[in-house]
């Protein structure tokens, strides 16, 4: 039995002596940041020249669209910064102005973007609008409930472009940084 005791002591002692761990600091988790960037399209609007020619007056199109995406609590509570990218293509024979107004729930105008396009042939207009520390106020985005789109024909109502399927097209996407943690 003496040998048994000795061997047991040796084994337990060996484990006790050799078993150790470097210092761990689980409070480091407080410093872990998760701030991903997400990107997706927002809206696409196409107005054909045939329609523009049919509508008399400057504003051939004005419409308020419900847009609750930015108001969703998951987004509004976490957004840190963002960029809205617009791309405008005019293949009609008319100069056209597009006005985008961001409205809150009471339909107050929070922000306006104006795009002026020469008649075709003209280059595609691309514009990035930043929100957050290096751009416009993020509150605009967080409070936006509707988007008002106004299209103004600065030309005539009779001419027709020779390009295929002439139209004014607005494309847009958004890229936002969220504070997940």
């Amino acid at each position: 039995m003496k040998m048994v005791r000795i061997l047991t002591l040796i084994m337990v002692g060996l484990l006790l002596v050799t078993s150790c761990s470097e210092e761990q600091d689980f409070d480091q988790l407080d410093d872990l940041t998760i701030t991903p960037d997400y990107e997706t399209s927002i809206f696409y609007v196409k107005a054909q020249e045939t329609l523009i020619n049919r509508v008399e007056g400057l504003d051939f199109f004005t419409q308020d669209f419900n847009f609750d995406a930015f108001e969703e609590p998951f987004f509004a509570n976490r957004v840190l910064a963002g960029v809205l990218t617009y791309e405008l293509e005019n293949t009609t024979s008319k100069p056209i102005e597009i006005r985008l107004e961001f409205l809150d729930e009471a339909e107050n105008v929070l922000d306006t973007e104006v795009f002026s396009m020469d008649p075709a042939p003209t280059a595609i207009l691309q514009r990035d609008v930043a929100y957050g520390a290096t751009g416009k106020s993020l509150d605009i985005i967080k409070a936006t409930s509707e988007i008002r789109l106004t299209a103004i024909n600065l030309g005539d109502n009779s001419s027709e472009s020779t390009l295929q399927d002439p139209a004014i097209v607005l494309r847009s996407s958004a890229q936002f940084t969220l504070d997940i943690r």
């Binding site: 809206f43 199109f61 847009s172």
Partner: peptide, 13 residues
């Protein structure tokens, strides 16, 4: 497949 809100004014006039 989603490309956001898509409005063809002529089709949805």
């Amino acid at each position: 497949s989603v490309e956001g809100i898509e409005i063809d004014v002529l089709e949805n006039f």
